[in-house]
Simulated scan of single mutants.
Amino acid sequence: MAIEDYLFIEQPLIARIKEKMPGLQGVYACANLADLATQQQITPAAHVIYVGDETGTTSKDQGNLGKVQVVTQLWAVILAVYDADPINTGEGARRLAGPLIASLLRAVSGWKPDDTVKPLVRGRPVPPHYANGYGYYPFVFKAEFVFNT
Rank of each mutant, 00 (worst) to 15 (best):
Y28I: 02
A45D: 01
C30M: 11
H129G: 14
G123D: 04
P86E: 08
E91L: 14
Q39R: 09
R122V: 13
S109N: 15
P44M: 03
G52M: 00
G63E: 01
N148Q: 13
R94S: 10
V140S: 07
I42Y: 09
E54Q: 13
E144G: 12
V51Y: 11
D83Y: 10
A76K: 15
V48I: 08
H129C: 12
R124S: 13
I42L: 10
K112D: 00
R122I: 14
Y6H: 11
L96S: 06
R106T: 14
G135I: 06
V71D: 08
K142V: 05
Q11T: 12
A15L: 13
S109R: 15
R124M: 12
P127A: 07
T58W: 10
M1G: 09
P113K: 07
P125H: 05
G135K: 02
A93S: 04
F8A: 11
G56K: 02
W75P: 03
L65H: 12
E4Y: 13
V70C: 09
Q39T: 04
A143M: 01
P22Q: 10
S103P: 14
G26K: 07
G56E: 09
V108I: 05
R16I: 06
P99R: 05
V77H: 04
A34M: 12
Q62G: 11
G66K: 00
T55L: 15
F141W: 02
N88G: 06
Q69L: 13
W111D: 06
G26Y: 01
Q11H: 00
F139N: 07
G63S: 02
N32H: 06
R95H: 14
L104H: 02
P127Y: 05
G66H: 02
F139G: 03
N148D: 15
D61F: 09
A107D: 08
Y82A: 00
P113G: 05
A45L: 07
T57R: 13
P44R: 03
T38W: 07
K20S: 10
K142S: 07
F141D: 02
D5Y: 05
A46H: 05
K118L: 09
K67Y: 12
H129F: 04
A107Q: 04
A46K: 06
I3V: 10
K142W: 00
Y137A: 03
R124I: 12
E10K: 12
P44F: 01
V51R: 11
W75V: 09
K18T: 11
V27I: 03
F139Q: 08
Y130Q: 05
P138H: 08
P99K: 06
N148I: 15
I49H: 03
K112P: 03
I42E: 12
A34Y: 13
P119F: 02
V146W: 03
V70A: 10
M21I: 09
T57V: 14
V81T: 06
N64S: 13
H129R: 11
E91V: 11
T58A: 08
V108K: 08
N64G: 12
K118S: 02
D53N: 07
G23F: 12
Q11R: 10
F147K: 04
I101T: 03
D114V: 08
I87W: 01
Q25D: 06
T72E: 09
G26F: 00
Q41A: 00
T58N: 05
L74E: 15
P128R: 02
D5N: 06
K118N: 08
N132E: 08
L96K: 14
A143P: 01
F139P: 03
G26H: 00
F145V: 04
A29K: 06
